[in-house]
Amino acid sequence: MYKKVDKDDMQSEEYSIIKQCMDGNADIYSVLVERYKGMVYNVAYRMLGETESANDMAQESFISAYIALKDFKKNSKFSTWLCSIAINKCRDHLRSKKDTVSIDEIAEVSVSKIATPEDAACNRQISHDIQTALNELPEEYREAVVLKHVEGLDYNEMENVLGVSSNTLKIRTHRGREMLKKLLRERGISHG
C-alpha cells in the first residue's frame, strides 16, 4: 500500500517538475537530470560500449527530452519515456558510426580484448569482457538484454520503452542470453 503511494507520489512530483519546466523554470529540470543520469548513462554505455559516446548520447537524451517535454504523456512514466529517447539516440549513433568504422576495425577490437582465463578473476576485466560480448550482440538483442538485466525492467516496461510487443521482447532477450552465454564461454568466463 505504501509502496503504491510512493510511486504515485514520485510520479506526481515529476509531473509538477515538468509543468514548472514548461512554465519557464528551466533550473528545476536539474532535479530530473540528477535523478536519472545514472540510468541513462549506464544504458548508453552498455549500448555503445565506450564512455565518451555514452556521455555525449546521455547528455543529448536529456536535452532532447527537455525539448520534447510537451509530447510527454501524463499517464506514462518519465523514466520510461526518457529511456526510450536514450535508446533511440544510441541507435542513431550506432547507425552513424557504422558508416565510418570498417568491419575490420570492429573485429580487431573484439579480438584484442579477449581475456585469458587468469584475467577472468579480475572484476574489471570481466566488466570489460561483458561489454565486448554485449557489443557483439545484434542491436535488438542488446537493447533487450540491457534493459532486462542491466536496468532490471520487466517486459511491460520494456514494451513501453521500445514500442515492441512483450512476446517479441521475450524472444529477443532469450536469444540475446543464449548468444551471451556462448560469447562468454569462448572467453573462458562462463562454466562449461
Binding site: G38, Y41, N42, Y45, T51, A54, N123, R124, I126, S127, I130, Q131, L134, V145, H149, V150, G152, L180, L184, I189, S190
Partner: peptide, 8 residues
C-alpha cells in the same frame, strides 16, 4: 555477470 557488472 551482466546483472552484477560494474555500474559506471
Amino acid at each position: 555477470i551482466v546483472e552484477k557488472s560494474e555500474r559506471l
